[in-house]
Design a protein around this nucleic acid. Sequence first.
DNA 1: TTCAAATATGGCTATATTTGCATATATGAA
DNA 2: TTCATATATGCAAATATAGCCATATTTGAA
Lengths: 112, 112
Amino acid sequence: MAIFAYMKKSNIKLFKLQAKIAKALSHESRLIIINALKDKEMCVCELTKLIGTDQSTVSRHLAVLKNAGILTEDRKGNKVYYKLLTPCVLDFFECAIGVIKAHQLEQIEEIV
Amino acid sequence: MAIFAYMKKSNIKLFKLQAKIAKALSHESRLIIINALKDKEMCVCELTKLIGTDQSTVSRHLAVLKNAGILTEDRKGNKVYYKLLTPCVLDFFECAIGVIKAHQLEQIEEIV
DNA sequence: TTCAAATATGGCTATATTTGCATATATGAA
DNA sequence: TTCATATATGCAAATATAGCCATATTTGAA
């Protein structure tokens, strides 16, 4: 890996952590999950219906988001409810729409 | 791929585009590039020195960011200068620090 | 036109990610 | 305890990504 001679080690570590968070946001299914958790917490079974893939796949997506610090879990009986720990990630959606508009306005304006 | 029965097609397309932008932000080197372009535009050769990997690798990172709508290029002579097209992505850095603080405060507080 | 510098791309390998299936684990109910 | 439901994890296959080397392309200078 690169040495980044011009940067302090602490900054490199910070960029790595930020990259990890961005990576957690970099999958369609995970963005749908985050959007669904905007106002309420939901259990894995509900999110599985929403996403429409295998339950194990959804469980793994949730683990990625939890591991990145974006979600927390809350077990109630035999169900595990996930909720947004850091709602500021929702701001990313706004910025992303801005990027999309700036970049490919013509092909996208009808959906944003 | 999933059908997302509960969602409008337009939303699915939007989430895919947002995921693409997040993916562009999901690599340490690309975050370093964005940070470096915060205040000034820079050519590929300068960014190559900064990152410390092969020039071809940097060129591909820049292509990813450009393709996501985050950077634009500006050729001057035989050099190509890249600059931030959508500075709102810098807000992501702030949110990411918030996520890091909320998630793993103890191991990270000295660097944020 | 010819050469040199800057940048982009083809080809390849190594590694990482996503997914589903099968199964393990955890919890509550009978 | 035994069973059923909910969730997580081991595994393997398919796909995607990152990296480097070699080379193509673009541009300006000689």
